[in-house]
Simulated scan of single mutants.
Amino acid sequence: MQNVREQVAALNELVAQYRYPEAFDRFYDESLLNYENEQPPMVGLSAERDAMANFLASVADQPHTAELKNVLVADNISVSEWLYDFTHKDWGKRRYTQFTVQRWKDGKVIHQRHHYATS
């Protein structure tokens, strides 16, 4: 089994390449709890898959920019800093920094929270 640092690096490489389905298959637990800022959680990997598919269908300029800036890993927790730049069909042009905090168990993400400005 890979250590958490190696798993985080491999996951982030898939995200940077927009290979979300592969990332979900390899690194996300079926019981995932995923939070967008302070919103109630999406429960389960299938909900995360659906949300990502809906988001990507609404991004007008494919591929969008997902640039990894920094990563911290300690114990079974990772924090990845991303720069996202895209145009959404409903929201318009978006460019923001996002921090994704993930808790890992048995090689899978079990809890994830995305932090970013909403205005």
Score class of each variant (00 low, 15 high):
residue 67 E to N: 10
residue 100 T to N: 04
residue 73 V to C: 06
residue 110 I to H: 02
residue 73 V to M: 06
residue 101 V to P: 07
residue 104 W to F: 00
residue 66 A to T: 05
residue 90 D to E: 15
residue 116 Y to N: 11
residue 73 V to L: 08
residue 72 L to C: 13
residue 98 Q to D: 08
residue 113 R to Q: 15
residue 92 G to H: 09
residue 66 A to H: 06
residue 70 N to W: 08
residue 82 W to G: 01
residue 86 F to M: 06
residue 113 R to F: 03
residue 65 T to R: 05
residue 69 K to C: 07
residue 116 Y to I: 07
residue 115 H to A: 10
residue 102 Q to N: 14
residue 102 Q to T: 09
residue 111 H to L: 15
residue 110 I to Q: 05
residue 116 Y to H: 14
residue 105 K to Q: 13
residue 104 W to K: 05
residue 90 D to H: 06
residue 113 R to D: 08
residue 75 D to V: 09
residue 95 R to Q: 15
residue 100 T to P: 00
residue 73 V to D: 06
residue 67 E to M: 09
residue 105 K to T: 00
residue 81 E to D: 11
residue 85 D to N: 12
residue 66 A to R: 03
residue 104 W to L: 04
residue 90 D to Y: 06
residue 112 Q to N: 07
residue 65 T to E: 11
residue 111 H to K: 06
residue 83 L to I: 05
residue 99 F to R: 00
residue 110 I to M: 04
residue 107 G to Q: 06
residue 95 R to K: 15
residue 86 F to R: 02
residue 104 W to A: 03
residue 68 L to A: 02
residue 94 R to M: 14
residue 76 N to D: 14
residue 112 Q to R: 03
residue 72 L to K: 09
residue 83 L to A: 05
residue 100 T to E: 04
residue 105 K to A: 13
residue 112 Q to M: 08
residue 84 Y to D: 00
residue 89 K to G: 01
residue 73 V to G: 04
residue 104 W to E: 02
residue 71 V to D: 01
residue 108 K to E: 05
residue 101 V to S: 09
residue 108 K to V: 05
residue 94 R to F: 11
residue 116 Y to L: 12
residue 88 H to W: 06
residue 76 N to G: 07
residue 98 Q to W: 00
residue 107 G to F: 09
residue 102 Q to G: 05
